[in-house]
Computed example of a mutant assay.
Amino acid sequence: MAQVLVIANINCDHILRLNRPLQTGARIHYEEQGFRLGGGGANTSLGLIWAGHKVQLLSQVGEDERGDWLLEQASRQGIDCSLVHRHVGPTQALKLLMDPSGERTILRPNRPRLMLPPALDTQGFDAIYVNLSAEGLAPMMAQAMDQGALLISQLPKDLGRRPCHYLITSADDLTPHKVEDPWSFALSIAGPQLKGVIVTDGDKGATLFNAEGQQHCPACEAELVDSTGAGDCYAAGLLNGLVKGHSEVEAMADAARWAAYAVSAASSVPPDSLRRHLHRG
């Protein structure tokens, strides 16, 4: 069992299921499907908890009833929310527009930039996963690496400094930046302690780039029902494999299996099918 710190958003997902894909100028019917717990903070944390790890979440919600509801839902699932900050103002819901194929479009509200606790103690965490931006984040991550923690991060949208051992991104996210050499690109963001950058590409699988070259890991076959949270589930599976001492390729294979369970269920957070798979293991 590992002690894991997850630094990521926790969201209230408002689900609207569309009768056809989005198209400019089209009239599209939708079915209201209510609100559910979501966001990278919840999506990543739950799989790790089911795998037997202890997870503490660093995130933020508003000082309102929706924020109370999110914290209650997350805590009920076993997530330690003692580091979740309550910002002034309401907790805005995230709108997920789901088309019939299972792909989604996310309408994300503006929210305050997360401020790290002034005396955040990273000592004692075996692994830290980062999937948001915050003031003072880079020095904290560098300190945690010096203390022996495994650092895994998603590619920051602002391409700011993100010291870590493994950087995760998608082929789609790299396309706008016209990246020809993912390893050199990742080194400029993650620093010299980077061991690898993993580029996911949906049902085409994922590729690990490092100083020695590259290795491809295929995706696991799955029926696409809802792609929400698949990337977060992949990151959790990768972290679980690495902290258990698996090789990078073995951990990527674990991550692919976790992501397959995520896309095959209509859920923002990991489905019960993943929980049953982990308990059988």
Results as ranks from 00 to 15, higher is better:
His87Leu: 12
Gln143Arg: 11
Leu137Asn: 04
Leu97Ile: 02
Thr169Asn: 05
Asp121Thr: 00
Pro90Tyr: 12
Pro117Arg: 00
Thr122Trp: 04
Pro176Asn: 00
Leu159Gly: 03
Ala134Met: 02
Ser153Ile: 05
Asp80Ala: 09
Ala144Phe: 05
Leu120Trp: 05
Pro118His: 03
Gln123Ala: 14
Cys81Pro: 00
Ile152Met: 13
Leu94Arg: 11
Cys81Asp: 04
Arg104Cys: 00
Gln73Ala: 15
Asp121Ser: 03
Asp80Trp: 08
Leu107His: 05
Leu70Asp: 02
Leu94Ile: 15
Leu107Phe: 06
Glu103Tyr: 14
Glu180Thr: 11
Arg162Asp: 14
Gly67Ile: 05
Gln147Met: 13
Pro117Phe: 01
Pro139Thr: 02
Leu94Ser: 15
Glu103Cys: 09
Ala149Glu: 14
Thr91Phe: 10
Ser170Thr: 06
Thr91Val: 06
Ala142Leu: 04
His165Val: 08
Asp146Lys: 14
Pro109Val: 01
Leu94Trp: 14
Leu70Trp: 00
Asp99Leu: 13
Leu83Asn: 01
Val130Pro: 10
Arg66Ser: 01
Val130Gln: 08
Pro109Gln: 05
Gly148Tyr: 03
His177Asn: 09
Leu150Ile: 08
Tyr129Phe: 15
Leu114Ser: 09
Ala144Arg: 02
Pro117Met: 05
Leu120Gly: 03
Ala171Cys: 07
Thr175Asp: 12
Leu150Val: 13
Ile106Phe: 10
Asn110Pro: 14
Met145Tyr: 12
Ser101Leu: 04
Pro182Ser: 01
Asp173Gly: 07
Ser133Pro: 14
Asp64Pro: 05
Lys95Asp: 12
Gln147Lys: 08
Ala93Asn: 12
Glu103Gly: 10
Ser170Asp: 05
Leu116Thr: 00
Glu65Ser: 06
Glu135Tyr: 09
Ala74Trp: 09
His85Ile: 11
Leu116Ile: 04
Pro156Asp: 02
Tyr129Glu: 10
His85Val: 06
Met145Val: 06
Leu167Thr: 01
Asp68Cys: 08
Tyr129Gln: 11
Asp80Glu: 07
Thr105Gln: 00
Ala127Asn: 01
Pro118Ile: 00
Arg104Asn: 00
Leu94Phe: 11
Ser101Asp: 06
Met141Trp: 00
Glu72Asp: 04
Val88Gln: 11
Ser82Met: 05
Leu137Ser: 02
Leu155Ile: 02
Pro118Cys: 06
Pro182Trp: 01
Pro139Ala: 02
Gly160His: 06
Asp181Met: 14
Val179Ala: 03
Leu155Thr: 01
Ala171Met: 13
Leu83Lys: 02
Ala149Thr: 11
Ala119Val: 07
Ser133Val: 09
Leu70Thr: 00
Thr175Lys: 13
Cys81Gly: 01
Lys95Phe: 15
Gly124Cys: 11
Leu94Glu: 12
Asp173Met: 13
Thr105Phe: 06
Val130His: 05
Leu132Phe: 07
Asp99Ile: 06
Arg161His: 12
Pro100Leu: 04
Leu132Ala: 04
Gly124Ala: 08
Met115Pro: 12
Gln123Arg: 13
Asn110Cys: 09
